[in-house]
Amino acid sequence: MAGKRTVLTVRLRRLAALLFDLREHAELSKEEVSSKTGINVTTLYRIETAQARPQRRTLMAMLDLYGVTEQQRTDAIQLLTDALKPGMSRPYEGSLSEVYAAYINFESEALSARHYQTSYIPGLLQTEQYAIAVIDTSMPKVEASVMEHRARARMDRAAVLSKDEPLELWVVMDEAAIRRVVGGPAIMRGQLDRLLQETKRKNVILQILPFDAGAHPGMAGSFTLLDFPDPADPELVYVEGIAGDELIEGHSEIRRYGVIFDQLRAMALSPRDSATLIASAAQRLS
């Protein structure tokens, strides 16, 4: 059942990385751990890749075998406790893909996000009417309840921009995102007005990549880079696509997307000129 899925969170990923490092430091293979603890090798793999949360007795058996310090034991137990807490996606998980639900959890705890979007207004900046129109078009024949849940999830996500320590958001959008009339002129005009309001936030930078910039490295598709306040949480990339969404980790891949984003923002209009272009697009819909 959808409600029984283990959806990835920041704390679960951190716990998985810690347990992997502890096993490596103990110089034990998964097969050796399985032989000494009775924990199935497949279960160990799923725990170390954050695909499953360990039960407390399983965690204790692993920590006993690895000969950890008291501080490491305390940290691991606390991470397990925190990993059991529901992420921001919990109310909507039945209507979301596992990857998208995990992304929402990561986004809610990120320090900053660098986002490139090809065709749509980014979810964090969408109005509810625009979001419904996008979902209705991109997910034909979806049930009304699922559409409502997905739209509500997008609206609730926007809270990260106004919380006490708000997400630092840097967006580069292809000009097509503000020119394509989604949901009709009235809905699109409201969406563009919302964008102009968001540009006034100190924690939001918005740039438009104009058509006359020509070919660019973001033409392959949309993506988001997330950075986290704790050094123990490595950066990750969320990639959107028709075939499915994907969360990517690894220094080389993160660096590649970082370089692409730097190129895109260098090719895009300045935030001031971008706001002027958005205002012009909105005026044409009046």
Rank of each mutant, 00 (worst) to 15 (best):
M1F: 12
K4D: 15
V7I: 15
V7H: 03
V7N: 01
V10A: 03
L12T: 02
R13A: 13
R13W: 12
A16F: 11
A17M: 14
F20K: 14
L22V: 01
L22W: 11
L22N: 02
R23K: 03
H25V: 08
L28V: 09
E31H: 10
E32S: 12
S34W: 12
G38M: 04
I39Q: 00
N40S: 04
N40L: 00
T42M: 06
T43R: 00
Y45A: 07
Q51P: 02
A52M: 15
A52Q: 15
R56K: 11
L59D: 01
M62F: 04
D64E: 10
Q72W: 08
R73P: 03
R73T: 06
I77D: 11
L79N: 08
L79G: 06
L80H: 08
T81A: 13
A83Y: 05
L84D: 11
G94Y: 05
G94S: 01
V99M: 09
Y100A: 02
A102D: 05
I104Q: 03
E107H: 04
E109S: 03
E109H: 04
L111Y: 12
L111R: 05
S112E: 00
A113P: 00
R114V: 04
T118G: 06
L124E: 02
L125M: 07
T127N: 05
Y130S: 08
Y130F: 14
A131E: 04
A131K: 02
S138W: 12
K141T: 11
M147Q: 09
R150W: 06
R152F: 05
R152V: 06
R152L: 12
R154L: 05
R154Y: 07
M155Y: 05
V160W: 01
V160A: 00
S162L: 00
E165W: 02
L167T: 01
L169S: 00
W170E: 05
V172Q: 05
D174V: 07
D174P: 08
D174C: 06
E175D: 09
A177T: 11
I178D: 09
R180K: 14
P185W: 15
A186V: 15
A186I: 13
I187Y: 10
G190D: 14
R194F: 13
Q197E: 15
T199P: 04
L206Y: 09
L206A: 01
L206N: 00
A215I: 10
M219N: 02
A220G: 07
G221P: 07
F223M: 07
D227F: 05
D227M: 01
D227W: 05
D227E: 15
P229S: 03
P229M: 02
D230I: 07
P234S: 09
L236A: 06
Y238E: 05
G241P: 06
A243F: 13
E246H: 14
L247I: 15
I248S: 06
G250N: 10
H251S: 10
I254M: 10
I260N: 06
Q263F: 10
Q263T: 08
A266H: 13
M267N: 08
A268Y: 13
L269N: 12
L269Y: 12
S274Y: 14
L277N: 09
L277R: 14
A282N: 09
Q283P: 01
R284D: 09
S286F: 12
